[in-house]
Every structure is written in structure tokens, then in C-alpha cells.
């Protein structure tokens, strides 16, 4: 691995002052589970690494009446185990608790989860000079694409958004607190993610001198749940993920203000509008949830190897809705 200069600022202001106006030469370090791996693969070769591990402010969780603020440095394990977060946002706690295995959840941070690089095997391969490095071709389009996008959204890179926290936060209407030299601002989570299409672009819309400080989630009494389809029960990347939220919708009551957001199917989290319309103002039953699941595939354009994901989208949406409604998960023995 290429060596680098290591910085450990004590405040967000100091961290911001160490960043540059382009990506690549200086990288922020959260838990290291993504960055250190990319460095070992020579995919990321920063000259400077700015650790966020010494900034106490990034570790706080504040639960207030109207909103919850979670510091970007909180580990996924601590989010999945937090009693109030589990109660208010089961979708978030479940998603955080299903990522990788216990060791990685003890290291990986909330901010890192939102800003991590994608998992496309061409991007992650040192020798594949893909669109996101200095090449001009997305190799997955004509290559091995079974884990890639089925909603390509016009993107030239068809890798899927890697964050499973992102779709959950969109369903919950969260905002991201971002800080740069000009000060702090709030970025609506629906505008946070952006498909990268060239070298020097990232999977989010922030600039290279922005730092994610915290995530704010409004407390609105939303019923919410998350379901992901994986090949293994744990320690595996999901193939399709569905995050849902709505008002009401339990015990046969009608669900309103429904949000259904899919992960792992598009370059950014995919808001399934047709599915949301299908279930809006309905009570949630196996039939209505299945119909929403079918609607969630509308507009999909699978690649050569991933049409199977459409069936998994139907399953994930149906099960996430049923879980949120309080139904007994019939798929577990």
C-alpha cells in the first residue's frame, strides 16, 4: 500500500481545514472498513488521510421530542443496539444490525456507510480501468452484471448504491448535517446520493471539502420497516433491499403517506412511486402488499444477467410492508 500522511483533528473545523477541493488526494477516515480495503487494492491511493476518530462531537446521539440526531461517527453496532432508536426507527436499527458481521459493525460508522464507494467488481479491481477511474467504458454493461442495477436511471455507471442505511433514511425523511469552511448546512437525504459517472466523482452529491457531521431524523410516529434479500443469513451484501414507512397501517388500519424505497437495484436509492400509489390508503394484507411489490418493478430495465432481481423486488417490498404492519413473518419457520 502507498504510504500517506495521517492527520487526527480534534474538531470538525480542523478536519474541514485539512480537506482539498478535489477528491482523491485527501480522504476522510471513519471506521476504515472501506477506505483501508480500497487502499490495499490500490483503487484509492490518497497522499493524506484525515481521521475523524478523534472528534467527540461525531459520537453523540440526541433524542428530542421532534427529531433525533445521530453523530456521523457512531458505529453501526451502536445504532443497532440503541434502545430508543430501535423503538422509534426499527427500520434503521434492523438495517444497521444486518450489515456485514459483528466486527465490521463495531468499526463501520454511519457517515462512512453513507459515503462508502460502490462494490462493483470492475471498480474494485485494480486492473480494470472503468468509467469511474480514467476509462471510458462501464464494463458491467456488457460484462458480469448479475449484482448491478435494474433501474439504470440513465446512468453510464450501473453499479448499485452500496448503502443500506440510505434507503431507510429516505423512507424516514431524514436530513444530513454537512459542514464545510462556510459553515453548516442541512442536505435533504433524498438529494444526498448521486450516481458517479466519471473519474473523480463519488456516490454522493457532497463536495470533497464537506464533512458529514450527523443525520437528523424527524420523529413523526411513522410505522417503518426494512427487509433485505441476501444469499446468506448474515455477513453478506443484500441483493435487493426495501425500506418502507407510513402513518397508521397496523392492525388492519389504512396506511397513508406511504414511502417505499429500494436499495441495491439502482445507482442511487430508488423511490418506488408506483408501489407507493398502489398501497396508499389501503390496509396492509398479503394481497395489497403483493400488489405493491409488483408495482415496484415498474419501469425496470434489467441488464443481461439480473432480471431475477425483479422477483426479489416484489418479495422485498411485500415482506417489508408486512413486517411494518405487525404481521407475523410467515417466511420464518
Amino acid at each position: 500500500m502507498k504510504n500517506f500522511s495521517y492527520y487526527r483533528p480534534a474538531t470538525v473545523e480542523q478536519a474541514v481545514s485539512l480537506l482539498e477541493n478535489r477528491f482523491g488526494n485527501t480522504e476522510l477516515l471513519g471506521g476504515g472498513t472501506d477506505l483501508h480495503d480500497l487502499q490495499k487494492e490500490y483503487v484509492s491511493q490518497p497522499a493524506r488521510v484525515v481521521s475523524l476518530g478523534g472528534i467527540a462531537q461525531l459520537q453523540t446521539v440526541q433524542v428530542a421530542e421532534k427529531s433525533v440526531t445521530i453523530g456521523a461517527g457512531r458505529t453501526l453496532a451502536s445504532i443497532s443496539e440503541h434502545p430508543q432508536l430501535r423503538q422509534l426507527f426499527p427500520a434503521l436499527a434492523t438495517a444497521a444490525g444486518e450489515i456485514a458481521g459483528p466486527q465490521l459493525r463495531n468499526m463501520a460508522t454511519l457517515g462512512g456507510n453513507l459515503c462508502q464507494r460502490n462494490r462493483c467488481w470492475y471498480f474494485r479491481d485494480e486492473h480494470s480501468n472503468c468509467l469511474l477511474k480514467s476509462g471510458s467504458t462501464c464494463f458491467a454493461l456488457d460484462g458480469e452484471n448479475k449484482y448491478h442495477s435494474v433501474f439504470t436511471q440513465g446512468s453510464r455507471c450501473v453499479a448499485v448504491t452500496p448503502s443500506t442505511i440510505g434507503p431507510v433514511l429516505i423512507a424516514l425523511g431524514a436530513s444530513v448535517e454537512v459542514q464545510n469552511a462556510a459553515g453548516k448546512r442541512l442536505v435533504e437525504i433524498g438529494r444526498f446520493f448521486k450516481a458517479p459517472n466519471a473519474n473523480g466523482e463519488r456516490e454522493h452529491a457532497l463536495a470533497s471539502n464537506d464533512v458529514v457531521v450527523a443525520v437528523q431524523i424527524p420523529v413523526q410516529g411513522l410505522t417503518n420497516a426494512h427487509y433485505e434479500v441476501r444469499q446468506k443469513l448474515s455477513s453478506d451484501w443484500p441483493i435487493v433491499q426495501a425500506a418502507v414507512s407510513f402513518q397508521g397501517g397496523r392492525n388492519g388500519e389504512k396506511a397513508t403517506d406511504v414511502k417505499i424505497v429500494l436499495g441495491q437495484v439502482a445507482p442511487v436509492p430508488h423511490v418506488a412511486q408506483a408501489a407507493m400509489r398502489a398501497i396508499e390508503n389501503q390496509s396492509i394484507t398479503e394481497q395489497t402488499a403483493a400488489a405493491a411489490g409488483q408495482a415496484a418493478t415498474q419501469g425496470a430495465k434489467p441488464l443481461s444477467q439480473n432480471a431475477y432481481k425483479l422477483k426479489l423486488i416484489e418479495v422485498a417490498v411485500k415482506r417489508a410492508l408486512l413486517l411494518a404492519s405487525g404481521a407475523r413473518p410467515y417466511w420464518l419457520a
Binding site: G31, G32, H36, S51
Partner: peptide
């Protein structure tokens, strides 16, 4: 490469030494 760092299980191959 598992070990305990401040009482939490981690993969030591992914912990940067200065951390």
C-alpha cells in the same frame, strides 16, 4: 485477525495502526 479494541471486537487488518 480478530481482537478487542477498547472492549469491542474488530478486524485488526482494517484498523490503521496510528488509530
Amino acid at each position: 485477525c480478530n481482537l478487542m479494541l477498547d472492549g469491542r471486537l474488530v478486524n485488526s487488518c482494517l484498523v490503521m495502526a496510528p488509530e
